[in-house]
């Protein structure tokens, strides 16, 4: 990804000293305690990498962080304010890339991306940002193509484009590299680096072997053993 393709991104995100933290979190799924006693802290410009075996609750933690579900115990705070107290503000500052890519096959690539940007209240430069986002993940040639013709990897890239199409300080990414080729993976790394340089926070579910060395790691297998 070239530097010019990120021109539309703000140099600095609004809250340069943000702290996102969880204390004593417990999660229950289907009557089963998935994890408990989990705590973390991430500050602006940092990345937190979640690793652990299948079913250890990484995706569940991401949903807790997004405010989609509530923890059975403990609390999540943004700058010391509980995220449940102002969920609208919390939703406004985050992007979630889950396992499903939320792409409508009947809409074109542009329309898919444009809908989410407009839904999140994109400003006047929305179309420029969308074009930049598509360029960043090498989808600009496919902009007018209905999404049903995209390959699995292209769909994944399209959903990652949402990160760049509207600004958000907190990125929650669930195995973002799944289905990406080397070039797209590099683009993602560049986007993450730029996001962190601008004061963004990223929480990423990854396999243990391919996390960036400077990121902080939360190992779920260790949490479970300790909890």
């Amino acid at each position: 990804m070239t530097v010019s393709s990120l021109a539309a991104l703000p140099d600095q995100l609004p809250d340069a000293r943000a702290v996102f933290a969880g204390r004593g979190l417990a999660c229950e799924r289907g009557g089963r305690r998935v994890f408990q006693g989990l705590s973390f802290t991430v500050c602006a410009g940092e990345a937190l990498v979640l690793v652990g075996r299948n079913g250890s609750g990484k995706s569940s933690l991401l949903r807790l962080m997004a405010g989609l579900s509530r923890p059975a115990q403990g609390s999540l705070t943004w700058n010391a304010g509980d995220i449940a107290d102002d969920s609208e503000a919390h939703h406004g500052r985050l992007h979630l890339i889950g396992h499903q890519d939320a792409i409508k096959p009947a809409l074109t690539v542009n329309e898919n991306l444009g809908f989410w940007a407009r839904y999140r209240g994109a400003g006047p430069c929305a179309s420029a940002r969308i074009a930049d986002a598509l360029r960043a993940f090498a989808l600009e040639r496919l902009a007018e193509l209905p999404a049903r013709y995209l390959s699995q990897g292209q769909r994944r890239r399209l959903s990652l484009c949402r990160l760049l199409a509207s600004p958000a300080q907190l990125w929650l990414l669930d195995e973002p590299r799944a289905g990406l080729d080397r070039a797209a993976s590099t683009s993602l790394d560049a986007a993450l680096a730029h996001h962190r340089a601008a004061g963004g926070i990223a929480v990423v579910v990854l396999h243990a072997e391919d996390h960036p060395p400077e990121a902080r790691v939360l190992d779920f297998d260790a949490v479970k053993a300790g909890g």
Binding site: L68, E88, Q100, A102, I103, K104, G121
Partner: peptide, 15 residues
């Protein structure tokens, strides 16, 4: 619900 759009809709500005 199935393609994950509902999660993203819930994370948007509309209640």
């Amino acid at each position: 619900y199935e393609d994950g759009s509902l999660d993203l809709l819930a994370l948007g500005p509309a209640p």
